[in-house]
């Protein structure tokens, strides 16, 4: 296989406050290849956003702190780069789109000015050529009457249109990697459908690599090639979309897909944080055994069905059919319906 465009290994990011240190990302590995979409899935607090913002160091440091790991992008370890060099890569080669498009838009400049600026910073185009390209980009992302709207301000656009503008700005510098963090979560479903269509189209025609951060398996099913499932700063499962959807291997992934028995034990208590010893999921897991409460999170092991899962049941000394059995049940019940 070819070299990955981005290779993240053993990434650890923590937040330090007076009272405590939160290990938001606690040893995470994943690769992204050119032209593919990798989805990072998890609930709030899983560390999915922090992991992505650690790539180009978007986090405010302190309180955030990158304590360990490598982030190799196109052969260069970004964690060792000075801020100035990193800034060039950010936006230029790795662009971000956020849940809230305002985060990448300025209220005081027209969208045209912002697009032109993005192109100028990254030496893509300038002058009339830049303006023409700005109109072309707006047209490309589906803004009607782009030659008029190019002179309007972000607040004159609807939420969905504003997200399209943010995507246009992200693409202005022709990046290799687009990091899209819950890009459609704040939008209505019909607007989301339009945006998902646009992202699919852009990704195919521009051969972009995309990291899609989301909580929504439906969005994953629509866009992603591969999936990383995160819980409490750890990767629980990793594999191709087909393998993970065919039979989620990790009990946590199964819970996200709607396992009944897990819901009863769900830890939903503000003062009850996940354990730091053993499998992070053991308090909620319906299959937990004493082994799950010892040592560290089990490593990602092959499951025999294509993907990898961080669960004790996939080592040699346990019988993985215990957690697998549920998969079969699930398939049967969904067929019956």
């Amino acid at each position: 296989m070819t070299e990955p465009l981005l290779s993240v290994s053993n990434l650890r990011t923590q937040f330090r406050t007076d009272r405590e240190t939160v290990r938001a990302v606690d040893g995470v590995d994943f690769d992204v290849f050119r032209g593919e979409t990798l989805a990072i899935v998890g609930e709030s607090g899983s560390g999915k956003t922090v992991a992505c913002e650690s790539i180009t160091r978007l986090l405010e440091e302190p309180p955030a702190e990158l304590v360990d790991g490598e982030v190799v992008f196109d052969g260069v370890d970004l964690t060792t780069l000075p801020e100035a060099t990193l800034r060039e890569i950010r936006g230029n080669r790795i662009a971000h789109v956020f849940q809230n498009p305002q985060r990448s838009l300025s209220p005081v400049y027209t969208v045209g000015e912002q697009l032109v600026e993005a192109m100028a910073i990254h030496d893509v185009a300038s002058g009339t050529a830049a303006r023409e390209r700005a109109v072309g980009l707006l047209d490309r992302v589906g803004i009607p009457r782009p030659s008029v709207r190019v002179d309007e301000y972000p607040h004159q656009f609807s939420g969905g249109m504003r997200q399209r503008v943010a995507i246009a700005i992200a693409l202005a510098a022709e990046p290799d990697l687009l990091v899209a963090d819950e890009p459609t979560t704040a939008l209505d479903v019909t607007v989301q459908a339009q945006l998902l269509d646009l992202l699919t189209d852009l990704q195919e025609t521009l051969e972009l690599a995309v990291i899609l951060v989301t909580h929504d398996f439906r969005v994953v099913a629509e866009l992603a090639d591969r999936v990383v499932v995160m819980y409490d700063g750890k990767v629980m499962e990793r594999g191709s979309v087909g393998d993970v959807f065919d039979g989620p291997a990790h009990p946590y992934t199964q819970a996200l897909f709607g396992g009944e028995d897990v819901a009863d034990r769900r830890v939903d208590d503000a003062d009850d944080t996940a354990p730091t010893v053993g499998c992070r999921f053991h308090r909620e897991c319906p299959h937990a055994i004493p082994d799950c409460r010892r040592g560290d999170q089990p490593p990602l092991r092959p499951t025999g069905t294509g993907q990898r899962a961080a669960c004790v049941y996939y080592d040699e000394s346990h019988d993985s059919s215990v957690v697998r059995a549920r998969r079969l049940e699930r398939e049967v019940t969904s067929d019956e319906r």
Binding site: A193, T200, R218, A221, E222, G242
Partner: peptide, 12 residues
Amino acid sequence: GSVPALDPGDRG
């Protein structure tokens, strides 16, 4: 119809 299916086989 604008809600994505929970099945990667049905994308698009």
